[in-house]
């Protein structure tokens, strides 16, 4: 089955979650947005028709929706509770400016998608690679401009989502074993980062990464 309109609905949702993520100071909302993004992005493989092996696609969907849509948000919410923060206070770049940056990133990605001759897997829409790339850029923006350690974990998950979409657009997915390995790595990475945030909050009484600067030179 191929559903270009469904695929485009998914992509629009991804873009909207990106914007909401950047414009919100409440970390809880950010985490929910990342979860939603993970779920809709995870659905992509079954919406494509060039999939030779439907079983494989469904396995992937179940795996990535479970991990990115359910496990990650639960884990992050728990870390948030343990660390006792609820807001991103004074990010290095303000919310309005971040939103503008995200929109520019989207325009840049669309322009790049139209000029750069990337061999496209037949996915029925030309929007997928640009949206994936925008999501990667938004994730990087979150990592760089936010102060709380947990925001960096959120940014990392957004980058992962972006790469996932980008990968589906570019090659229509890589071998199953690789896909599973990547998923497992992402899971462990987020898990470890969660533990690290927890330890940092215990040791330092804060999770502000700009104050983790004792070692220099």
């Amino acid at each position: 089955m191929n559903h270009p309109s469904l695929i485009e609905a998914v992509l629009v949702t991804v873009v909207l979650t990106n914007l909401q993520l950047l414009g919100s100071s409440r970390l809880k909302i950010c985490i929910h947005m990342v979860g939603l993004q993970g779920i809709v992005a995870g659905l992509l493989p079954v919406l494509l028709d060039h999939e030779a092996n439907p079983l494989r696609a469904w396995l992937l969907v179940v795996g990535s929706v479970a991990i990115k849509g359910i496990v990650f948000p639960k884990l992050l919410l728990r870390v948030l509770r343990d660390a006792g923060v609820c807001r991103e206070v004074e990010p290095f770049v303000g919310y309005i400016l971040s939103l503008l940056a995200a929109v520019s990133a989207l325009m840049f990605s669309l322009w790049m998608g139209s000029t750069l001759v990337l061999p496209q897997a037949p996915v029925g829409t030309t929007l997928m690679a640009p949206v994936g790339f925008t999501t990667i850029l938004v994730g990087l923006l979150v990592i760089i401009t936010r102060r709380k350690a947990i925001s960096q974990v959120i940014g990392y998950v957004v980058v992962e989502n972006g790469i996932y979409i980008f990968g589906v657009a570019l090659v229509g997915g890589v071998p199953m074993l690789v896909e599973l390995g990547v998923l497992m790595d992402a899971f462990v990475a987020v898990f470890l980062m969660g533990i690290a945030v927890y330890k940092i909050s215990r040791e330092f009484d804060h999770i502000d990464v700009d104050r983790l600067n004792r070692m220099q030179g």
Binding site: I136, L140, I143, A149, Q152, Y156, V159, E160, I163, F166, G167, L170, V171, V174, V182, A189, L192, M193, A196, K199, I200, E203, F204, V209, L212, N213, R214, M215
Partner: peptide, 26 residues
């Protein structure tokens, strides 16, 4: 405190950096 700081930087910088390598692989 110092080793936690080092571990945090290591984990984040390398994970994000290596994510770029995956884009390259794709």
């Amino acid at each position: 405190p110092l080793s936690l700081e080092a571990m945090w930087k290591y984990l984040v910088v390398c994970s994000v950096g290596v994510a770029f390598a995956f884009i390259g692989t794709l």
